[in-house]
Computed example of a mutant assay.
Amino acid sequence: MSVEHLLHADDQPPEPPSARRRRGVRALLYVLVAVLILVLLAAAGVVLLTNHLGDQVGRYPSVFSGLDPSSRPAAKAGQTFLLVGTDSRSPDPTTGADATAPDFVFGAQRSDVIMVATIADDGKSASVVSIPRDSWVDIPGHGMNKVNAAFSFGGPPLMIRTIEQLTRVRIDHFAVIDFAGFQQMTDAAGGIDVNVGQTTTFGGVTVPAGPQHLDGAHALAYVRQRKELAGGDFDRVRRQQNALRALISQALSSGTLSSPTRAYDLVNSVTQHVGVDDSLTNPGLAELVYGLRDLRGSNIAYLTVPTTGTGTEGSQSVVYLDEQADQDLWFAVNTDAVQQWADARPNARLPAVPR
C-alpha cells in the first residue's frame, strides 16, 4: 500500500518552510488590507460627518469683499474672529441653518453685541474683548458714529473694516448670531449656569440673583437687560460675556471637546444657529474645533475695551474710548500678551459675579 493510502483523511504531508513563510506573508497582507479598508471607511465617515455639520452653518458671502489688502492690518499667528449679535428682535432665527427670517435687512439692523475673540496659535489660550455698541468711532465713508451703526450702513464688510481700522487687529473670520438663535442654542446646550449679581426682569421674564441654571428664555432676558442695571450697557456687556463664559466653561470642563460624541452634540447645536463668513470651510471648522481640545476656561481672558466715560453727540448717548489704553490692549492682542495685560490690570477682567 502506498504511503498516500496510509495517510488519514485529515492528515497532510509536512509543509515546506518556504510555503509556511509565503502563507504567513499573505495573512499579514490580508490583515493590512483589512486595516487600510477600515481606516479609509473611518476617514470617509469623518468627511461625511464634517460636511453634515458644516453644511448646517449659514454662510455670509463676500464678507471680506471691498477690503483693500494693502490697508488691512498684518496677519498674526492664531485666529481672530469678529463675533456679532444682532438686535433684529425677530422671534424667529435670522442666522444659521434654521433661519426663517431675513438674516440681514439693510439699514434695519445694528449689532447689539460686538466681541473680538482671538485664539492663540497653539490653541491653549484665548481672549474675548467686548466693544460697547455705543462706542463713538470713525466709520469709513460715514464719519463719526456709534460703532454698531457700521453693520446697518454696510453689513459685515463695513463692520469688519471699521473694527480693523479701530483696533489694527486683522479679522480672520466673521460670526453672527441673533437673539432667537442664542435662545435656541442655549436650550440645545441644556442651559447655562451663571451667578447673577442682581435680580432683573426683562420682557416679563425675571432672573433672580444668585447662582442660577438658566434656560434659553431666562438666558435671553439676562443678556438683554440694561435699564435696570446701574452700569447700563457696560453691565449688559459683562452679562453677555458671562453667558459666553458659562457656555464655554460647560463645554470645556466636562471634556466635551475630547469626547467625539459630546463634541458632535455641541457642534451640532452651535452650527444650526450661527452664521459665518464663507471663507471658513467645512474642513476649517473641523480643524478649529479639534484645535481647541487643549483649551481650558481658566486660560480665556474676558475684557471690555477701556473707555473714558459717556456723553452725548447730538441726540445720541455715546461711549468714549480711551485711545491710549486701547492701543496698549490691541497691541497685547496682536502679540498674544492679553493675559499679561490683564494680570497688570485685574479690575479690567470680567468679575466672577457681574451685576
Results as ranks from 00 to 15, higher is better:
Gln241Thr: 03
Tyr264Val: 12
Gly232Leu: 08
Tyr222Ala: 05
Asp265Arg: 14
Leu247Asp: 02
Asp215Lys: 06
Asp233Thr: 11
Gly190Ala: 05
Ala243Val: 03
Arg238Leu: 13
Leu220Ala: 05
Thr256Glu: 00
Lys227Arg: 15
Gly210Ile: 04
Ser249Thr: 14
Gln250Tyr: 02
Ser253Cys: 02
Asp235Gln: 12
Gly231Asp: 12
Asp233Gln: 08
His213Pro: 08
Val194Ala: 07
Phe202Tyr: 15
Asp187Lys: 06
Gly190Cys: 04
Lys227Asn: 12
Ile192Leu: 11
Ala246Asp: 03
Ser254Trp: 01
Val207Gln: 08
Ile171Phe: 03
Thr256Lys: 00
Gln240Lys: 03
Arg239Gly: 06
Ser258Thr: 14
Gln198His: 14
Val169Leu: 02
Asp215Cys: 06
Gln212Cys: 12
Val176Trp: 02
Gly181Asn: 11
Arg239Ile: 05
Arg238Lys: 14
Thr167Met: 09
Asn195Ile: 12
Arg168Val: 11
Leu252Trp: 03
Gln250Phe: 01
Leu252Asn: 05
Ala180Asn: 10
Asp215Gly: 14
Ala217Ser: 13
Val205Gly: 08
Ala221Val: 08
Arg170Asp: 04
Arg168Ile: 09
Ala188Val: 04
Ala246Lys: 10
Arg245Gly: 04
Ala188Tyr: 01
Tyr222Cys: 02
Asn195Ala: 13
Arg236Ser: 02
Ala175Ser: 06
Asn195Phe: 09
Glu228Ala: 15
Val207His: 10
Glu228Met: 13
Thr256Ala: 14
Gly190Glu: 03
Gly216Asp: 01
Val207Thr: 02
Gln198Met: 10
Asp265Val: 10
Asp193Ile: 03
Ile171Leu: 12
Gly181Leu: 07
Gly203Lys: 08
Arg262Ile: 00
Met185Asn: 00
Asp265Ala: 14
Gly232Tyr: 11
Phe174Tyr: 15
Phe182Val: 02
Val237Tyr: 00
Gln240Ile: 08
Ala221Lys: 01
Ala251Ser: 12
Leu247Glu: 11
Ala230Tyr: 12
Asn242Cys: 12
Ala180Met: 06
Phe202Lys: 14
Gly197His: 02
Thr261His: 07
Leu214Ser: 07
Arg236His: 09
Arg239Asp: 04
Gln198Pro: 09
Gln241Lys: 03
Asp235Pro: 00
Met185Pro: 05
Phe234Tyr: 13
Arg170Thr: 04
Arg262Gln: 14
Leu229Met: 14
Thr256Phe: 03
Val169Asp: 05
Ser253Gly: 10
Val176Cys: 11
Val176Leu: 13
Gly191Pro: 11
Asp178Leu: 12
Thr167Phe: 09
Ile177His: 01
Phe202Trp: 14
Ser258Tyr: 00
Gly216Asn: 02
Ala189Asp: 01
Arg262Trp: 07
Phe182Asn: 04
Gly197Arg: 02
Ala188Lys: 03
Ala251Glu: 07
Asp233Met: 11
Thr201Phe: 07
Thr167Ile: 08
Gly231Phe: 04
Tyr222Thr: 01
Thr199Arg: 09
Thr199Ser: 15
Asn195Ser: 13
